[in-house]
């Protein structure tokens, strides 16, 4: 049997196997259509860079969620860890008087611990990830609010420059996003270590029989996720020159939405992180167009919801037929 011999173009198998390309075509098509319709508002360089900027701060959280979903788990504490990261960083700079660099390093070290707590509870104590991270999320957020009160602002200029400086007219967080997405997609595609998450998410029993240390891998995935979420918190703080306890509200579920639209399976083992990022680009475009059209925010929610359902239904139909 030779699968490659069938060279006729098949839309279904194209959509099922070349997800990245299909998404890219969709996004580019979207850009072209709306740029032609609204050349002065949508189709501008500034607007394009805004679309990317709007998704950039949360991009590390998306990467974290994508890895966790691929390994067959979920992490609902990412938003709380993001908030905790931002607030701790602000507190270290404003109250303790640490330099921005030292603050960032300490906060990132703490993030390794919060992720580790999640991982150990899930893999060693066998509590489901949903419940574990729901609980630790409340704990992390509670601690963050206690430490922050109403929030921190007026950060050192060195710090805010990291989030507000521009290169080629594009704000820095966009570049951080590109770097994080590039590193994570490289690792998830090429590294033997990270590839193991696909085996675990695809068939845990088979992964175990193949000699993969599942507990260890799970702990590491939650540590990485915590690290990335905290990074997002720091970038957000630098970009807005403020950290508020509500900055992370709903970010986990926005990440799930983007990942699933990008083809990451909610039950694990399928999809990849760069497609999840493309999913986020698509949502960001959609929201931008709706904003340009001055559509009420509530309609935006409804439309995102419809797109999510459509994406999943199409996914089920297409993969089923392609097989």
């Amino acid at each position: 049997m030779n699968i490659a011999s069938d060279r006729r173009f098949n839309l279904r198998s194209f959509l099922a196997t070349r997800r990245s390309l299909a998404l890219l075509v969709l996004i580019v098509g979207f850009f072209i259509v709306f740029s032609l319709l609204f050349p002065s508002t949508f189709g501008t360089y500034d607007n394009f860079s805004l679309i990317l900027l709007n998704m950039s701060a949360e991009a590390p959280v998306l990467m974290a969620m994508a890895i966790i979903l691929i390994s067959g788990e979920i992490d609902l504490s990412l938003g709380a860890q993001m908030v905790l990261g931002g607030i701790l960083c602000g507190r270290f700079m404003n109250v303790s008087g640490f330099s921005p660099l030292l603050s960032i390093i300490i906060v990132l070290l703490i993030s390794l611990l919060t992720g580790f707590i999640n991982g150990v509870i899930i893999s060693k104590l066998k509590v489901t990830a949903f419940i574990t991270t729901l609980s630790t999320g409340m704990i992390f957020l509670g601690i963050a609010v206690m430490l922050a009160g109403t929030g921190w602002t007026n950060f050192p200029l060195d710090f805010t420059a990291m989030g507000q400086a521009k290169l080629l007219g594009i704000q820095m967080p966009v570049f951080y996003m590109l770097i994080v997405v590039f590193i994570m997609s490289f690792l998830m595609a090429k590294s033997r270590f990270f590839r193991q998450y696909y085996y675990i998410g695809g068939n845990t029993k088979a992964a175990n029989l193949s000699g993969i240390d599942i507990d260890k891998m799970k702990i590491i995935s939650f540590v990485i996720a915590g690290f990335l979420a905290t990074l997002a918190g720091i970038i957000t703080a630098a970009r807005y020159n403020v950290t508020l306890p509500n900055i992370g509200t709903g970010v986990e579920l926005r990440a799930v939405t983007a990942a699933v639209i990008g083809g990451v399976s909610f039950t694990g083992g399928k999809g990849n992180v760069q497609d999840a990022a493309l999913g986020a680009v698509f949502i960001s475009c959609l929201n931008n167009v709706l904003a340009v059209l001055k559509v009420n925010q509530n309609y935006q929610f409804c439309i995102t919801g419809i797109v999510l359902i459509l994406a999943i239904v199409l996914d089920i139909k297409i993969t089923k037929k392609a097989e």
Partner: peptide, 8 residues
């Protein structure tokens, strides 16, 4: 029982 991962 099968010990393969479908998605790979």
């Amino acid at each position: 029982d099968r010990s393969l991962v479908d998605g790979m």
